[in-house]
Amino acid sequence: MADEGMTPWKDLALGCAMTEPGSSKSFNTGDWRSRHRPVTDRETCIKCGLCWIMCPDMAYTADPDAEGYYLWDSYYCKGCGICIEECPKDAISWQEEKEEDKYGPACGT
């Protein structure tokens, strides 16, 4: 096994604990999307925030932008489509996405 990214045993915290809370935020689950991403039509969106609260992956930021829209985060969205299904105004729809466009920095951390 290549030992890249492995932790020497002496550096482990007591009992292999993790002392940095929420360290999963560095994990790019957006990588799991396949071929499409959800896109919000700002004309139709009523800024209700259901996309934010119904997202299992917290791929919409908690703080709306200056205009009140909840921002979608490419870094975490796994592409499940719940936001599209649950949007009361059908303002969110799939858009084709190329593999190379999937990757970007997290916007909400």
Partner: peptide, 13 residues
Amino acid sequence: SKGHRACQGCGEV
């Protein structure tokens, strides 16, 4: 926090 590894569309998470 985000970055967890639940399946797509997991209602449990």
